[in-house]
Simulated assay, not measured.
Amino acid sequence: MKNIYLNTGTLNEVFNELETSFDGVLNSSNNEFKLALDTDFIKGNIDVVTFINGITSFQVNMTFLDDIALSIESPSKSSILFAYCTEGYFKHSVGISGPQSKLRKHYSAVVTSKASVNTILHFKKNTALQFSLIQVETAGLANTINDPFISHLKKTFLNNQSNFNYQGLQNLKIAKKFSQMNSISDKGMSGHVQKKDIIQSILNMEIDNHTDTLIKISRAIKRSALNHINDLKTKYSVIKNYAADSIYSKVITSKNRIFIK
């Protein structure tokens, strides 16, 4: 078992620390970081994109050659973390002795915390792992103050509870969005804008997935009522046409009888 401690800071500071500590190769430009690691106990890549509205996307593709406990300083109380696992699994706990929850393949999680306790990620030896993280910082940045999208995220995940920890099956639409993002080949501003649009569409899906149950029920009732009305209209149209056809048929038959006489 190896214990790794990662201090928080700017992305430049964090990635420079990772590059130095693990003899990695770091390339960074246009708010994007690509770190390749090849050591005796970690092999793989971390790709990160950061956006001006406080949103950061992490794509991790790793194999750990030893059991690893990664301790990360507690994020700010105004941050929201979305996680999606596409291969393998890992465990998460608040504090080294806290209860562990597993995030496995095809599952997702949303985590916020008001506690000033380190987050611990537990990785098993010889487990190939692919997962994505989206971190949203909802305060402290000038570009987030009047951003209605960030405000909507805060209202959904931060304002109504002191701690939020949800795990569920990964939305296949979200998985498809990440696949689209990974296939973007455009460089510079064009590629950056495309990635931002995809990340925000994923977060919009998360907002919709966690919208208040009463609102969802209300929407379902409205959809059911509309479907019922449309069904009645269809039935009425069928009955009306049938009645018209029936009357027409009787009139024709009556005329024929008169003619025969």
Rank of each mutant, 00 (worst) to 15 (best):
E19T: 15
K173I: 06
F259N: 14
E19I: 08
S132G: 04
H228V: 05
S249A: 15
D208G: 00
T127I: 14
L103Y: 08
S113C: 02
K34S: 14
Y5E: 09
L35T: 07
D47S: 13
V193P: 04
T234E: 12
D23M: 10
G54C: 08
S116C: 00
N45Y: 04
T86D: 13
T20L: 15
F33T: 03
S201R: 02
S76M: 05
A225L: 15
K91Q: 15
A139H: 05
G54T: 09
A244W: 11
V25C: 08
I207V: 14
T253Y: 06
G95L: 05
I247E: 10
Y242L: 11
I199R: 01
I202N: 01
K2Y: 08
Y166T: 03
F64G: 00
K195L: 11
L214Q: 06
N160Q: 13
I150K: 02
D231A: 12
Q135T: 12
K124N: 15
E32R: 13
G191K: 01
M181V: 02
I52R: 08
I202P: 03
N227R: 10
N53K: 11
S179E: 14
T234R: 12
V193R: 12
S183W: 00
D23L: 06
A109S: 15
P99N: 14
K91C: 11
F90T: 01
L37G: 04
T253C: 01
P148L: 09
S190K: 14
D40P: 07
L214P: 00
K124V: 10
S28M: 11
I145T: 14
K195S: 15
N256W: 00
R223N: 10
D208F: 05
A243G: 00
V111Y: 08
I150N: 00
G9C: 05
S79P: 01
Q180S: 10
I4S: 01
G95N: 10
K177D: 13
N256E: 13
V136C: 07
F131Q: 02
F22P: 02
I42G: 03
I134A: 03
N53T: 13
L172A: 13
V110S: 02
E137I: 09
K34G: 02
L153N: 06
C85M: 09
R104H: 12
G44H: 08
H92D: 06
K235Q: 12
Q59R: 15
T10Q: 07
F22C: 10
Y5F: 14
F131C: 06
H106I: 03
V111N: 09
N3K: 13
S246L: 13
M189R: 09
T86G: 11
I120S: 04
K124Q: 13
Y89P: 03
G9F: 02
N12P: 02
S190F: 12
D47G: 02
V117G: 03
T156C: 02
C85N: 12
L153C: 05
K34N: 15
Q161R: 10
T8D: 10
K255D: 09
G88S: 08
L172G: 05
L121S: 11
G95E: 08
